[in-house]
Computed example of a mutant assay.
Amino acid sequence: MLSEPTYIPARIVASEIEAHFRKHQLAARNDTDSAVASAPDHTIIEAVIDVAFWASMRREEGHSPNISMALLQPYQSDKPLIFGEKLRLTPQNLIKLAPAVEQPGIHLGVWLDGDDLFIWGTTHSVPAVCFVLEVIEPGLLVIKHRRVDGFGKYVNVAVLQGDQIKVIDEDSMGIADCPQLIKSLEAMPLPAYMGESFNVLVQLAASMRQHKRGGLVFIVPQGTEQWRESIVQPVKYPVVPAYTAINDLMRTKCDASDKLEWRESLLEAIDLIGGFTAVDGATIITDKYDLLAFGAKAARAEHSQPVGEIIMTEPVADGRARRVHPAQNGGSRHLAAAQFVSDQHDAIALVASQDGQFTVFAWSPQVGLVHAHRIDSLLL
């Protein structure tokens, strides 16, 4: 019998998460012939979150657990590893198994058997829109699902940190109270919710966060030179000729037999650029993903004014747009990003902080200000 959950946010958010999965699994079944996961009941979701939270607060031999759990039955997975005896889903069992599943892409398989939840084994593969819960650090949980085409980062549904609940607002992305920001939001590299299309810049954002050194990327229009007015000259590390591997791969058509190799090559090219973002200064790429320079120093354009105010949003339910001074948004990278976009209205800036925050900057022509959209809740 399922234990009575004691982590209150689990109960608060479970029904909303259930509705999300039912909606998207139904849509996926109508749109694809691929296997689609079964929708979990809110009581199961609540129980899984509760156990994961309390497990996250424990330590085993001095280590906090990093665990990924997927709600599915063994037959829904490709080549699962099945335990000889299934284990009841408890914080203690999760802690004991955590060291074996710390590597990315390995999930503990969890499913209901009778009146209780059990860990039946591990798997590398999960069906489309499968409920996955990842323990990131003590008290920090992310509920997500696999994209329909299986390629790229999983889609985040909700982030729970202690008593804070952030449910991703897939409809208005947190700007329902300020519809004037829709144009700048459309210019930003945000993940498609059902995930049929691969988003290079979202994958780059994930790569930037991975090295944990912080990073700054300026995305400028292909074939233009105006951006140089906002960069200290000469550029310290220009890339000549431009590194065009991502653009070349995106224009390549491949059949099914070559698709896996193509995907691996694309991810390698993205990670290569992501690595350069760890170098002090800005990495500059075009809107076609060509790498032009790294380690560049941003400077206010000669005839521009210092940025005094920006609009801040976050893609969570009940989010509110706020007008703040750019210094309230972060440190020197955030200030540089806000100034660059204020000077170069057709550019976009990405900022990864060392603490894991990630913000996208774009110009909002309707509001006449830089729009800063914090999206780390989409990238965990």
Rank of each mutant, 00 (worst) to 15 (best):
S230V: 07
P315M: 07
V101M: 06
F218K: 05
D116N: 11
H325G: 12
D271H: 12
I284M: 02
R147F: 03
H145W: 15
A245S: 09
W227T: 00
D346L: 05
K144W: 04
G109E: 02
H24Q: 11
M208F: 11
R146A: 15
A338P: 02
P326I: 04
W262A: 10
I175Q: 01
P99V: 06
Y154R: 12
F83L: 14
V129W: 07
I67P: 07
P40K: 06
R147I: 04
E4L: 13
R213N: 11
M188C: 11
G356E: 12
S125W: 14
A352R: 10
G331P: 00
I375G: 08
A298I: 10
Y237L: 01
Q76C: 04
E102Q: 12
N30D: 13
Q73G: 14
Q76L: 06
K236Y: 02
K183G: 09
A298M: 10
S184K: 06
D280I: 03
G223S: 05
D255G: 09
Q103I: 10
D290T: 05
T244M: 09
E134Y: 10
L94V: 03
D171M: 00
A37G: 15
R323P: 08
D41T: 09
P40H: 04
V239R: 00
V307L: 13
G109A: 03
Q203I: 09
L266F: 04
P127D: 15
A39E: 02
V220F: 03
R29S: 02
A301D: 01
R88N: 12
Q344N: 00
L89V: 03
L140I: 11
T313R: 07
P179N: 02
K96Y: 04
H145C: 15
P221E: 12
Q210G: 08
D31W: 13
I284Q: 01
V159T: 13
R320M: 13
G319H: 00
V324L: 15
K23L: 10
G368T: 07
N247K: 15
